[in-house]
């Protein structure tokens, strides 16, 4: 399969990228790591006139310590995220979820920002970003703005990003000392999640002091399991309380039906996997 023709632009600054996107209008696509876009172009499911490649924007790569948060450049590859010690120490949930993204080759090219902007409901990174209250730092023609993850994801493959916006950084509040787990359920290793659960907890003296739980592929966007979080906080870190909390995992979700799972099964999986994710995190 062969992509349709397009004009290729590889800007050397974010401003230049925004300008190029603005000039191209609706017909442009941003190329980050390309691990979803290039197959889509090959299949001719999309045929943009202009492709704006961000790979020359070295300022968009890397993980920086920013006090209470990490600032992760949108063009940081999954491989870099996996191996970054700041992520390991302060955003363990993200590191664990990134381990589950696609396969090693894809992780060498694919980027954190690209995965978030792609907003595949079955993708593994939106839910951890949501769980960790990440903030998207976006540069558009009107300048720079920040959008919390809870507002960033709008629908299937749709975010608040305008066609001429560039996601430049992701601010991830540190969860230092928290334990975490990403529980992914799929049919073969390289398949997308049927359902997955991102969980991070802070346990203090045997009690769950804080909890963050978000779900992958339980609706058009990642879903924060607020009910589960509420039910966990203040409870002892025991199987009984975890399971009681996990029973609320499907609340407020809108799972789809497809060849792998119907809505009923997805809801069931959400409950089971949430229990397992929290249990694993607590035990971690």
């Amino acid at each position: 399969m062969i992509p349709a023709e397009f004009e290729y632009v590889a800007p050397t600054s974010v401003e230049e990228a925004v300008r190029a996107l603005t000039e191209a209008g609706e017909d442009a696509k941003v190329l980050a790591g390309g691990q979803s876009l290039i197959p889509v172009l090959r299949m001719r499911l999309a045929a943009p006139n202009v492709v704006v490649d961000l790979s020359n924007l070295s300022e968009l790569t890397g993980v920086r310590d920013d006090g209470d948060s990490l600032l992760i450049g949108a063009m940081t590859t999954h491989y870099e995220v996996q191996r970054d010690h700041l992520v390991h120490d302060h955003a363990r949930l993200l590191a664990l979820a990134t381990d589950e993204v696609a396969d090693p080759q894809v992780r060498h090219r694919g980027t954190f920002g690209g995965a978030l902007a792609h907003a595949d409901p079955a993708g593994d990174l939106p839910a951890p970003a949501l769980a960790m209250d990440a903030t998207m730092i976006i540069v558009g023609p009107g300048g720079r703005r920040e959008v919390p993850a809870a507002e960033f994801f709008v629908d299937y493959f749709t975010t608040v990003l305008e066609p001429n916006d560039v996601l430049v950084d992701i601010r991830v509040p540190k969860l230092t000392g928290w334990s975490a787990h990403y529980e992914k359920f799929n049919r073969v290793a390289q398949a997308w999640s049927i359902v997955a659960v991102a969980a991070a907890v802070r346990v203090s003296d045997g009690t769950i002091a804080e909890a963050r739980v978000a779900l992958t592929n339980m609706g058009p966007t990642p879903v924060r399991a607020h009910g589960v979080e509420e039910a966990l906080v203040g409870q002892p870190a025991t199987a009984e309380s975890i399971n009681a909390a996990a029973a609320r995992a499907a609340e407020g979700t809108n799972p789809t039906t497809d060849g792998n799972a119907d809505a009923e099964f997805r809801s069931h999986l959400a409950r089971v996997l949430t229990g397992r994710a929290i249990t694993a995190a607590v035990g971690a």
Partner: peptide, 9 residues
């Protein structure tokens, strides 16, 4: 699941 609007990654 990727429609014609499939975004970039």
């Amino acid at each position: 699941s990727i429609d014609a609007q499939g975004g970039a990654e």
